[in-house]
Design a protein around this nucleic acid. Structure first.
Lengths: 114, 114
DNA sequence: CATGAATGCAACCTCCTGGTTGCATAATAA
DNA sequence: TTATTATGCAACCAGGAGGTTGCATTCATG
């Protein structure tokens, strides 16, 4: 079954999607989009949730490979890691293209055989 | 703050990401990638979960705009709806490109000013 | 009409997630 | 050293997500 291929691609990117699926985490990613590094306290300011909650979200994002943190002095700076982002994008691309191909094949088969 | 723009893009695609984040739903999407329509019972066969659980997942996917179902006789056929998929892909694309732009700007600023 | 198949709906359960508070620890500043 | 800042860690809690079972309903079929 060909679906297995796409299934495995989706499965591997599932943590990334799950990570981006939470609004609070999506907001964190958006704030990190500027290209700079930000400390936890700074990320928590104006987030509407406590610093500890932000820390948890950052760990989820890190587990998905979306962000990485570096310690500098007494603060930990977090930055975006776009590799997994691109991987997920490619995954969605593959799926929608596969859908298009299947539809056009279906079209051809209808025109030719029916 | 410029991050607002990307935040809203991410927020609007968040349901799509959340929907794809669950392995069971990702598997359903993968099975629907073939371009055809499938009934609930057929989707449930070999899924490892009950038909009712599959139904719930399909509703989540439908709420995210990823699938749509049509009634035919006594069975309901579900098919993929790639529009939201493309939207989400474009969203990830925007983010990673924004990241690249920010990094290159940072590079230029470092070369020019320091 | 009687039967079986495909689905919908509701109640229920368990577990994980997102969030909090409280306290401990490491690093800068005075 | 002492005070302050930034963070880590653990316990705890409410709510929702994912799953199940049971039953009702609708459609096809004889």
């Amino acid at each position: 079954m060909r679906a297995r291929r796409f299934s495995s691609a989706l499965q591997s990117s599932a943590p990334v999607f799950a990570a981006l699926g939470d609004p609070a985490r999506a907001r964190l990613v958006a704030r990190l989009c500027g290209g700079g590094q930000m400390s936890i306290t700074r990320l928590a300011s104006g987030a509407g949730i406590t610093r500890q909650a932000v820390t948890k979200h950052l760990h989820v994002l890190a587990d998905a490979g979306l962000v990485s943190g570096v310690r500098r002095g007494r603060e930990q700076l977090w930055e975006l890691n776009p590799r997994q982002l691109r991987e997920a994008r490619r995954c969605l691309d593959t799926i929608s293209r596969q859908w298009d191909d299947a539809l056009s094949r279906l079209q051809v088969s209808l025109e030719g055989g029916g």
